[in-house]
């Protein structure tokens, strides 16, 4: 499915990247501000409503995990949300200075029935991020860590 009207590609368009950033405290009361920021830019980028909801949800889940796990619920740290939009994709970098994501320690919930039986509601954020985005990556960079999410704008993106 194509999200946008046909475009004529030029080298200039492919190279052009628009970047926007928002810095929020590592406090869950700011999750709504992050969602508004994502919503506004995904809308400007031309995504349909359902795709905007998906991007918003994936970013919300990622920020929640950064607060809970990377910062271990310490609410005085910072998360920097950086959006980079080009003709091909909408990319979100969530930068933090907490504990990096430990892939080997993450256990995906078995299924909904198992969560109900265990009376536990947690662990579904990573599942949703992977389900909703075209790319999810965790990077350890110079001086900070990053959760990197990509939603493609053109062909072959997840609907």
């Amino acid at each position: 499915m194509s999200y946008l009207k046909p475009v004529v590609f030029s080298d200039l368009m492919i190279q052009q990247t628009m970047q926007y950033s928002l810095r929020v405290p590592s406090d869950k009361r700011y999750l709504a501000d992050v969602r508004r920021f994502i919503e506004a830019h995904a809308s400007i980028a031309g995504f349909p409503e359902f795709a905007i909801e998906h991007i918003k949800l994936a970013v919300d889940e990622a920020c929640t995990n950064i607060i809970d796990h990377a910062y271990q619920r310490k609410n005085t740290e910072a998360i920097e949300v950086v959006i980079a939009v080009d003709v091909l994709a909408f990319r979100i970098s969530l930068r933090h200075r907490g504990i990096p994501f430990q892939r080997e320690q993450y256990h995906r919930p078995q299924d909904l029935r198992a969560s109900i039986n265990a009376r536990k509601g947690g662990g579904w954020g990573v599942f949703l991020m992977n389900k909703l985005m075209d790319e999810v990556d965790y990077r350890i960079l110079d001086g900070y860590n990053e959760v990197y999410l990509v939603k493609k704008r053109l062909l072959n993106g997840k609907s």
């Binding site: 969602r35 929640t64 109900i116 954020g125």
Partner: peptide, 17 residues
């Protein structure tokens, strides 16, 4: 208007009881 997995988790945690 919106729900994330944290909201869904509340239903998961209580429904069995």
């Amino acid at each position: 208007r919106y729900i994330s997995s944290a909201g869904l988790g509340v239903f998961m945690a209580f429904v069995e009881e």
